[in-house]
Amino acid sequence: MLSQKSVVFSVSQRQMMPDSVCIRMTITVEDIRHIASLARLGANDESVEQYAEQLNRIMCLIEQMNQIDTSCVEPMAHPQDMTLRFRDDEVVESDQRKVHLALAPETGSGLYLVPQVIEQDA
């Protein structure tokens, strides 16, 4: 548990992140490249460095979670203690294919078009 003397609640950034609290693995530029590729975001050399610096600082803030013991606590996914509601399996929506396709950057023959993904036979 947090000690009485804990200063994490203070608004001052220095106090929010005492150096001694932040003992963690550093996110490397290689990690950043991996995360960016999972997230389908581009990362050039310059932005990789910047992401690494910023994410490491943010993760220092996040690491403060470890000051609190949660060993016997059930995770909480949602504010409501209820099971998902089901509806009857009935058609309620009308066909709006044209309306939705009209929003797409590129369409053809009633389909969404994307760059070619399967190579054609020679």
């Binding site: 950043i32 995360i35 960016a36 997230a39 609190i68 606590v73 059930e74």
Partner: peptide, 25 residues
């Protein structure tokens, strides 16, 4: 990027599940 990192394999329990437990507290 943060979200992808805390959900990625190897970090899910340490960050995402940990945060969900704190949420209950």
């Amino acid at each position: 990027m943060i979200g992808t990192y805390v959900l990625s394999s190897g970090y899910f329990d340490a960050y995402y599940v940990k945060a969900q437990k704190l949420r209950r507290l």
